[in-house]
Amino acid sequence: MMVVGVGFFIAVALTVITMSSREALPASGVERLAITITSPFQFIASRIIGFTESVWQTYFSCVLAVEENQVLRRELSKARYTANWCKELELENARLKKFVNFQSSVPATYVAAQVIARDPSPWFKTIMIDKGENDGLIKGLPVLVSEGIVGQIIKVSGSFSRVLLITDRNSAVDALIQETRVRGIVKGNNEDTCSFVYTLRKDLVQPDQIIVCSGLDQVFPKGLKIGTVLDVKKNHSQLFQDITIKTAVDFDRLEEVMVYKNAD
């Protein structure tokens, strides 16, 4: 039925066009009748064509929008990567500036190194650096950053070295309180803090006092910062105080270090 209707519509339309072009019909006769019959079909056909064009335009617009969205996502991802990379360079530059200022303030030879590994064991506090015997490093050299001391080298290979952190329980640094010159030993306890031991109960020790290296252990240069007093406890039955210190170095964020080679 649809095919017949479409055929009838086309036939009538062609007839009207032909007769109109030859002026064979009067405007008030068959032509008006044909126009009356074909107008609804022409209206429907034009609406269908218009709707179809709108659908196709919408479809292609959606396809183009999806492609453009994918391109923009890739460009945004690249922009974020570039911004993050620039931020990392900025932070690294700030850290290196601290190293340069620190080196220029002390007459010594340093070797800069990067931290490439950390000991995952909870029983040891060590790190691995990317410098070794090929760079003139030997066992026992102190490792520092601009904020304070990190530890000392305990093993050396051609291109790598292992550093024992001052927070390790096997570490000990001869130290003193900067203001009062009260002596003691900084011992690691495998935690984020250290202990300041062998300080007599009669000595005055208060929170926030700065603890520095004494230089008497012949490992760490005198005057370098170790940390600050965090808590002080005195037990009348004990000879020494129980002192906890907060290290000057944030070991969780340690990325670059300096190895102290020569103080001459």
Rank of each mutant, 00 (worst) to 15 (best):
Q218N: 14
L224H: 10
D231M: 13
V205Y: 04
V205E: 03
D242H: 14
Y198E: 13
K234W: 00
V197H: 08
I210P: 01
Y198T: 05
D217R: 01
I226W: 00
T244S: 15
Q209D: 12
L204F: 04
K222S: 10
P207N: 09
D203L: 02
L216N: 05
L204M: 08
L224D: 02
L200G: 11
Q206M: 14
V205F: 03
G215Q: 04
K222R: 12
D217L: 09
D242N: 15
L230R: 12
K225M: 07
I210G: 01
V232D: 06
K234G: 07
Q238Y: 05
Q209R: 05
Y198V: 07
F196V: 00
D242L: 06
K222F: 10
F196M: 03
F240D: 15
L239S: 06
N235V: 07
L216Q: 10
T199W: 00
D208M: 05
S195K: 14
G227Q: 01
F196P: 00
T199H: 00
K202E: 15
T228G: 10
T228M: 11
Y198H: 12
Q218I: 01
D217S: 05
P207S: 09
F240W: 12
H236A: 12
S214W: 07
K233H: 06
V212S: 03
P207V: 03
K222Q: 11
T199R: 11
S237E: 14
S195L: 14
S214K: 08
V197Y: 03
V232G: 08
D208H: 03
Q238W: 06
G223L: 11
L224E: 08
V229P: 03
G215C: 05
Q238P: 02
V212E: 04
P221R: 07
D208R: 06
K222G: 04
F240P: 10
F240M: 13
Q206E: 15
G223W: 06
C213V: 02
I226K: 00
V197T: 12
S214I: 06
P207E: 12
L224R: 11
Q218Y: 10
V232E: 04
D231T: 10
H236M: 08
T228R: 15
F220N: 00
S237H: 14
P221V: 05
S237V: 11
Q238I: 05
G227F: 04
G215R: 02
F196T: 00
Q209A: 09
K222W: 01
S237Y: 14
S214V: 06
Q218V: 01
I210K: 11
V205I: 12
I226M: 01
G227M: 04
Q209V: 04
P207F: 08
R201C: 06
P221Q: 11
Q241N: 07
L204S: 14
K234F: 00
I245H: 06
D231K: 15
D203F: 04
K202T: 15
D208T: 04
H236D: 14
T199K: 05
P221K: 07
D231N: 13
T244P: 09
S237T: 14
Q241E: 07
S195G: 09
I243S: 05
K225C: 05
D203P: 04
T244N: 10
K222E: 13
I243Q: 08
Q238M: 13
L230Q: 13
V205G: 08
I243W: 09
Q206Y: 13
S214E: 07
D208C: 03
L224S: 00
Q218C: 04
L239R: 11
D203R: 14
I226R: 00
T199F: 00
T244C: 13
I226C: 01
L230C: 02
